[in-house]
Design a protein around this nucleic acid. Sequence first.
DNA 1: CACGATATGTTATTATATTACATCGTCCGG
DNA 2: CCGGACGATGTAATATAATAACATATCGTG
Lengths: 148, 148
Amino acid sequence: MPHSEANHDHAGHDHVWADDLTRNQELVLGALTHAHSPLSAYDLLDKLRGDGLRAPLQVYRALEKLTERGLAHRLESVNAFVACADAHCHRTGTIAFAICEGCGRVDEFADATVEGRLKEWSAVTGFVPRRTTIELRGRCAECVNRPA
Amino acid sequence: MPHSEANHDHAGHDHVWADDLTRNQELVLGALTHAHSPLSAYDLLDKLRGDGLRAPLQVYRALEKLTERGLAHRLESVNAFVACADAHCHRTGTIAFAICEGCGRVDEFADATVEGRLKEWSAVTGFVPRRTTIELRGRCAECVNRPA
DNA sequence: CACGATATGTTATTATATTACATCGTCCGG
DNA sequence: CCGGACGATGTAATATAATAACATATCGTG
């Protein structure tokens, strides 16, 4: 059932929610958007049981579509997912993530130099990248001086 | 039982096998070294059942030590492990991996510029990285023109 | 030799992800 | 209007990856 409740009430850009999401996709993206740290597929499932989701596959399928479209990202190094930081003009190039192990905060950034160097390496070696992962795990400025 | 069979028969450098590995660690590193593609912990377990390994934990524990020492690396994006490309003078800085989805070949490389840029980003934001993952998945030059 | 630190072995359990299969709804051509 | 193609859904079962908890053994050292 595509096209349930469209919401254009976001002052200025009308594809914040991409507006053609499936109900399950909306639920999952909503949960990710409201979370303050990455959520695993099973975290999502637990949060969404009240909304009718019952099986892991429902979540994984939604996540697959969302990540394909760049509305969500998978953090490979922690087996979890986040909403894209700027969903209404989602990035295309390689993205890097800094994941705070203290508070769960995730910063998403793109660096043209890094991307360029990796492209260069690929060009030289003939390697053709399909998907690139750059993830820093550590502590954000706020958490760096906290116990453990 | 540390220090079983030391082998210094590698002409020129005598810590190819780091020489103080546990039996289990030797088995696991040996299997990784002879493999031509990344192995999961369970792949390793299967390969090493004949050598007395029975439980996943035995493998995971060996892998933990080996990766701590830089003799093996974990590929986060594929949940698998490889032997370090140059075990006798193992790298310290950030390493990037190019993983071929055709043949399983893994190239390990370090790029000072990439590392520098990520350090810069960290310095600016106050983020303190503990572990950095850079992984390209795609097709190597040999596999790029092959069916699927 | 006794102790602490480290390595081991084993069982069970948790966490993450996919396979297989049946159903339902929408769109579109006849 | 019918009927198929397609994509989304629901459900159960299973595969794969990783850890918890506990007991035992081994080594280096005081």
